[in-house]
Simulated assay, not measured.
Amino acid sequence: MSTSAPKRLANLWDDAKAAAMSEPERLVYRSNLLGSDKRVTNYGGGNTSSKIFQKDPLTGQDVEVLWVKGSGGDSASIKLDGFSTLYMDKLRALKGLYRGVEFEDEMVGYLPHATFNLNPRAASIDTPLHAYVNHPYVDHMHPDAIIAIAASVNSKELTKQIFGDSIGWLPWKKPGFELGLWLGKYCEENPNSKGLILESHGLFTWGDTPKECYETTIAIINQAIAWFEQQTEGKTIFGGAAVPSLPAEQRRAIAAKLMPKIRGLISEDSHKLGHFDDSAAVLEFVNSNNLRPLAALGTSCPDHFLRTKIRPLVIEFDPANPDIDAVVANIPEDIAAYRVDYQAYYDRCKHDNS
């Protein structure tokens, strides 16, 4: 965490705006608010849901429908058509078909049979995690401050220390039907809980209104940020600074020279866009003594490495002797070595059935 105190997440909920919306529109509104701040979840990350009573187009009867972010959506920009809709009674009936954890992958094939109103949006693997939480509104986010807790070796103890009994904890389990059942069991056994942390994964929060759910999510993340601020105040972070930063104009000039070369080398199979970030928190990390060993540890949340791969490539650069031509000359070899390392990681960890 940066030694410069990060701002708390703002509560952006507007009662007047929300009151004029339908229930599905309030789900979009809630999702967009959460996704608008990357401290809450990264691009394409997290999912939200609402259990809404609607008229069945066949029977005309009111039925409970799960609206949940579909596969491939982005919380910040999602619209109504980005959500899957499924009959809750059919999702509950799936429990009777479940043959155990060794067969849980087959449950994904049943989800289309629960589709409400012929919605073409495919349901995601996280659908059971929302369906079996016995609250009508659920947020599942991957906030940096929460991931720092969830990925710690003493994740369970930290969760208890920071949140007491208001937030629970579950050990790592890959997303799927079994984890959905775990969440449902936890909710039934802990009716006063506001949410839980999934080890090495992220945060689940819930509420009885869309506003309550959203505000709980924001409050829990802010509570984690505040705890980290308290723990790091006055302490050396990342092993201290190894090098000073170059002036801002010089940093950007160097980035402008490096980016076209990097983009060209990584765009062999598909075109890529570059993004340059020299914020205070980033500089604190890249200037630090522990940059290389910490970068080698890689990402700590599956939702993150879907976007960033397992670890970043650190390109050697000495700001006291900024030889850009030498850096540019070495980039092809650096990227080639990164690809070899990544392929070796993939070959070591792949499964025949995955």
Score class of each variant (00 low, 15 high):
70 G>Q: 07
192 N>E: 12
143 P>C: 10
345 Y>N: 03
177 F>V: 02
5 A>W: 00
64 E>V: 06
251 R>H: 00
71 S>D: 05
334 D>E: 08
100 G>M: 03
51 K>A: 06
209 T>N: 08
317 F>Q: 11
6 P>G: 09
49 S>A: 11
13 W>H: 09
251 R>Y: 00
219 A>E: 11
203 L>R: 11
209 T>W: 08
344 A>T: 12
283 L>V: 10
4 S>Q: 10
217 T>G: 10
258 L>T: 04
229 E>P: 00
260 P>G: 04
352 D>Q: 07
283 L>K: 15
87 Y>M: 10
24 P>W: 12
95 K>T: 07
16 A>Y: 00
339 R>I: 14
344 A>H: 05
263 R>S: 09
320 A>V: 01
80 L>F: 02
76 A>S: 13
199 E>N: 13
270 S>W: 08
11 N>P: 01
332 P>Y: 04
312 P>E: 10
260 P>Q: 01
274 G>N: 08
72 G>I: 11
25 E>P: 03
9 L>P: 02
18 A>G: 08
227 W>L: 10
288 S>H: 03
72 G>S: 10
113 H>Q: 15
26 R>H: 03
174 K>F: 14
227 W>E: 11
325 D>C: 07
72 G>D: 08
165 D>Q: 15
152 S>T: 05
115 T>Y: 01
278 D>Y: 06
92 R>W: 01
33 L>P: 02
175 P>D: 02
36 S>F: 03
203 L>V: 09
254 I>F: 07
128 P>L: 14
317 F>R: 03
253 A>E: 13
276 F>D: 14
341 D>H: 11
223 Q>T: 14
85 T>P: 00
247 P>E: 05
70 G>P: 01
284 E>I: 09
257 K>Q: 15
122 A>I: 09
139 D>M: 12
21 M>S: 11
109 G>Q: 10
202 G>W: 01
66 L>M: 07
297 L>T: 04
310 I>C: 00
104 E>H: 11
143 P>S: 11
185 K>N: 02
4 S>W: 01
153 V>T: 12
226 A>N: 10
249 E>L: 12
12 L>E: 14
1 M>I: 09
125 I>L: 14
216 T>P: 02
290 N>V: 03
330 N>L: 05
311 R>A: 14
284 E>C: 08
318 D>H: 07
122 A>F: 03
341 D>G: 07
68 V>N: 09
111 L>I: 07
82 G>L: 06
247 P>G: 07
291 L>H: 10
105 D>N: 15
140 H>A: 14
139 D>K: 13
61 Q>N: 15
28 V>L: 02
239 G>K: 09
211 K>I: 08
224 A>V: 05
145 A>R: 04
126 D>P: 03
112 P>M: 07
242 A>W: 00
101 V>I: 15
186 Y>T: 09
83 F>P: 03
156 K>D: 01
346 Y>T: 08
215 E>W: 07
236 T>E: 12
309 K>T: 01
289 N>I: 01
46 G>V: 06
261 K>P: 01
234 G>P: 06
284 E>K: 08
316 E>N: 15
193 S>H: 07
348 R>M: 02
175 P>A: 02
